[in-house]
Write a protein that binds this DNA or RNA. Sequence first.
DNA 1: GAATTAAGGATACATCATATCCGCAAATTG
DNA 2: CAATTTGCGGATATGATGTATCCTTAATTC
Lengths: 162, 162
Amino acid sequence: MILKSQVEWALHCCAILAGLPEGRYLSTKALAELHGLPKEYLSKALQSLSQASLVDTTLGPSGGYRLAKPSSEINFLDIVEAVEGKARSFTCTNIRDNNPCRPAGYCDSKPCAVARVMWEADEAWRNTLRRVRLSDLVGTLSEEVPAELWQSTFEWVLKRAG
Amino acid sequence: MILKSQVEWALHCCAILAGLPEGRYLSTKALAELHGLPKEYLSKALQSLSQASLVDTTLGPSGGYRLAKPSSEINFLDIVEAVEGKARSFTCTNIRDNNPCRPAGYCDSKPCAVARVMWEADEAWRNTLRRVRLSDLVGTLSEEVPAELWQSTFEWVLKRAG
DNA sequence: GAATTAAGGATACATCATATCCGCAAATTG
DNA sequence: CAATTTGCGGATATGATGTATCCTTAATTC
Ligand code: FES
Ligand code: FES
């Protein structure tokens, strides 16, 4: 059970977009170069963010991406689900139905106890991600990343932001 | 991010083994038939449980599997990790290293903030699974499964248990 | 000795993550 | 207007991984 690397890419890109001044856009090309990622494939991840309405886009030179909402209104789960999908990690295939002792036509009233536990764990995972906002991440980063690097990175970004 | 179906199979099989009288074994063949699963492939899941020392095995006719410990000392995480592995669902590929603004030879002191959040969510998932014991599952099932079906199933099982 | 079983290796197949390429439409630049 | 840049979606290729089957070996029962 491994998350795709697109999840990491999307999170890092959102963190950068959160630092953009109001109204500016940053292109796939710049985001790919900044993180050392394949531009064409990163584009797919950004398209997922766009489809989830987490980012706005604009075309043409000086086009690219910006956040669609304040970073305090976007949480980790929004981003993770945008690229990874909203499906639960455990799927009940109802193998209890195959029990040869079952009377024909017997139908279960509840989802089975096994699935309920697995889904509860899934919810705990989602709840943790839901509780952390993008703005929290930016806050942590601005504390932990050396001020010099933090500043030069955003100079680099602003030079390329349309 | 989808768990393999082997996880469901292993959980159901453990629930059955938990109901076995002391010292008896149940074969792959019986477990596969009871759940309507491909015998050869289910065997791989059971081998994983064996390698994790969750079950004991014995060979020959009347051989098969039984729990290696009381069902109160086995939790969901034990079983899930046995077949799914213990690796975390999120892997940090350190793409922050590719930032062209970094001074050469710069080295990070901490794992990055992105990964820490993702790992925290992973831990929440694991903790939920750790808290539920196999004996809890058996308790729930014995309440929810109609008494008639519950009884006939274990008659079916005992007829095949060596 | 014959039958049965778990264990593990080899192999085939399908699905999905990863990655690249192309053409289209929209926006900017000059 | 023409040229360029960009996001977007479709098509395609490749590798890894989940699913599944088959076979051999060794241990156990009868
Ligand atoms: S029948 Fe297996 S998890 Fe629901
Ligand atoms: S550098 Fe991306 S999660 Fe650690």
